[in-house]
Design a protein around this nucleic acid. Sequence first.
DNA 1: ATGATTTGACCGTG
DNA 2: CACGGTCAAATCAT
Length: 292
Amino acid sequence: MESPNLSGYRRKAVEELLQGRKSAKELKDLLRQTPGTGDLVLVEKILSSFANSIAMLSSNQPDEVSQNLRIKSEDSGDSIKSSRRKDGRGCYKRRRCVDSWVKEITSLIDDGHSWRKYGQKDILKAKHPRSYYRCTHKFDQSCPATKQVQQIEDNPPKYRIVYYGHHTCMNLLNASQLLLDSASTHTDSSFLLNFETGTATAAATPAGVKTQSPFSSFSSVKQEYKDNIPTELITDQHHQSSSTTTKSDYLLSPEITSGGIMMLSSPESEPPLDVFSGVIDSFLFDDVFASL
DNA sequence: ATGATTTGACCGTG
DNA sequence: CACGGTCAAATCAT
């Protein structure tokens, strides 16, 4: 795939980070063996930071994802020209000048983020309405991420989810839980298993609500997913609607998993997950490193 | 009481 | 003007 070669300093940086990550892991193991001596969550956060950094340095091209499509990317941000409305309504942009990527899934799964529905529309020629979601932290953390969910097939049900923008919000609570969870199984579990486990705990679960399934926890998008049994993803198509994409955008964004790192071990598709660091285990990063 | 969802109106684009 | 994305008041859920 991508990244013909990273420049020397990046390679060095990754090398350095891998070293740090290794140490952090050792510390984690140590703490696990002697409970009460420290905060595992903290270590997981550290690991997460390492992983994020490594991933950012390692990820390159938007088009490293073979399945990338270009969303009818008309404009790149200037269609929102002139007439900005002054107050309240109408001040939104219709076209996104941000990255977008599509997933088609057979069941609505938790992607690890908390979403808030802000609209629903009947779409022309579509059997099912389209739901619009924005990140719960849109206002408190100015997180620009949004997504659209629409059922495109009946039976078996199939949903298309279009993600727009990258999460800039910190979901550390979820993250650490996720990491802890994956840590407990990380020795022998498969990549997928890790991933699912991580996703499972990514959102705060109201006690007693649809447990069992690793994907059972939905903090905010409840009705949307309530009676779906999480299964697998079918496709994952990335879009780059704008040339303004910057690598730094990948921090804590879902596509880093599906478009970047994830691709290393799973050319298929994976649900987006911002806090992938603890989920993607060492072998993955070793792969990354090996490809440098 | 607070936060999430629903739903019709509003608005920009084509 | 139709369409689709967003807003925000009303409503619902916790």
